[in-house]
Write a protein that binds this DNA or RNA. Sequence first.
RNA 1: AUGCCCGUAGCUCAACUGGAUAGAGCGCUGGUUUCCGGAGCCAGUAAUUCCGGUUCAACUCCGGACGGGCAUACCA
Length: 547
Amino acid sequence: MLKVNIEQQLKVIINEFSVSKGLNEDILFTVEIPPKNINADLALNAAMIIAKKIKTNPRIIAKELIDIITIKLALVIKTAEIAGAGFINLYFTDTFLQKELERILEEKDHYAKQENFNKEKIMVEFVSANPTGPLHIGHGRGAAIGDSLARILKHLGYNVVKEYYLNDVGNQMNILGQSTETRYKQLKGENIPFLENGYQGDYIKDIAKDLINEGKNAEEINFKEESHKRILETIKKDLNLFAVSFDSWFSESKIAEEKDVNGKTEVDKVCDYLQSKNYAYQKDDALWLSSTNYGDDKDRVLKRSDGRYTYLASDVAYHKNKYERGFTKVINLWGADHHGYVARINAAIQMLGQKKGALKVILYQLVSLVRNGEPVAMSTRSGEFIPLQEVLAEVGSDACRFFFLLRAPDSQLEFDLELAKKQSSENPVFYVQYVNARCHSIFKDYKEDNNIPLDFNLLNSKEERDLIKKLISFEDVLLICDKTMSPHHLTTYLTETADIYHRFYEKCRVLGNEDKLTKARIELLKAVSIIITKGLDLLGVSSPEKM
RNA sequence: AUGCCCGUAGCUCAACUGGAUAGAGCGCUGGUUUCCGGAGCCAGUAAUUCCGGUUCAACUCCGGACGGGCAUACCA
């Protein structure tokens, strides 16, 4: 609550002020936590904006604003001063900082929940890998980002559902079944060639081996079903290892195979609807979506001339279903290789009557795998891919998640497997986890005495003030993650907090002081532990008390 | 060829979506008075690919050049 609350109060003051200057428009000012080299708690740029509009010297405006702010916000703002080109630097009162610190200690892991949020129903759909092979490292990035973003939104107070869309119908599933069947027969000694476009990964052979070991004959095996079932189990196991959970698994068969009383599937119905509204048309015996009218480069096929639906058709039906379930905001995480797909699905949801903003596609750039400087291909069809599981076994889930969440989704990520291994002892995740371990190590040696009064006024050194300020900006950081749809700001924040904490730790001894000071610092450490633990939890990373 | 994303320190990435003297980690150099965990701390080193434009203010927006990735199916 460093700035969100203050922003509201300043808005009233500044708008009043601008009206008094003859302006009748909203001033779009910002309140910011200044860069490290600036010794201020908050910075306000309103004076520069107003000055420009009424063509005056910003420093004069700033002077006038300062007079008003210091009077009206006396409880929060101790002093304010002009800086640089016309910034107003604000300094908090100690009471304000202490009150916020108390809030952390009272609210504990509920801190930063937004009570006034409207509980908007949000769906985050991610991973959604086809059940034709184990998850690979690219899925891992999507999983880490999607899961953490969902955790953050949930914590802030949104009504969030995490969903995995399962493409379990269609030709890929047939090929999967045939691949397993062929491997099964080959292992049984039949001299038959493997499918040209079959799945070549070793996991197919493993499934075939298992089936043989279970002593079943080819005739009594449904290869498609067995393969699907077993691969899905592997996927769920990997996700579990990666601390990723889903609230909902949505099967494509529900919209592509289940029929209503009239013998129509959801896909049939949505295509009928689009055609009835002239959003889709027949050409060359195929059904086309007029996506060009809504910003796409060209129209797309919904139903092929041979009568089979495209992937797009079921995806349109699937999105219709999402909105029918009451979600007002739908977030999809896609690998950047699907970016060409955004325009057509955006077109489709608008045809279904949704606003453009009702769908937010987060494209995360692909992970390029490198091993000893050599690029590694990772197609699931060639069999040359690095399973997520393998990386988890090498570097661990905590380090892997933290690593993925250190970067913004739209920056490309080079993942060198050798480097990842090397980093296992130097990874920044340990730096952050170490904070909590140090706190708990002190708690262990501290004997609480309720007769000693708690006095936060004693926390007045620069290190203590810096630490408190950082802790109470947790809420702002989560709101930035919400606004930018990216959890990486939280990762950065935790690293910075750890940095400030370790500096505090060097300068300010906790145990063995005068009792009152020790008590105040212990309470500060409790707040540190709360924020670090909660922050790591939102990233899906553990925070052990001992390491 | 066209479209989308990216280009920041030797390496991997930040910079609160237009704010002040561009921050971290790793690496490298030097230091750290027997004490709460040295997985730490302190000091030093080093960067916005290039050229224009927009404005009080540009890593951020616009135009162009160069470089990297991805995508351009009646594939899933």
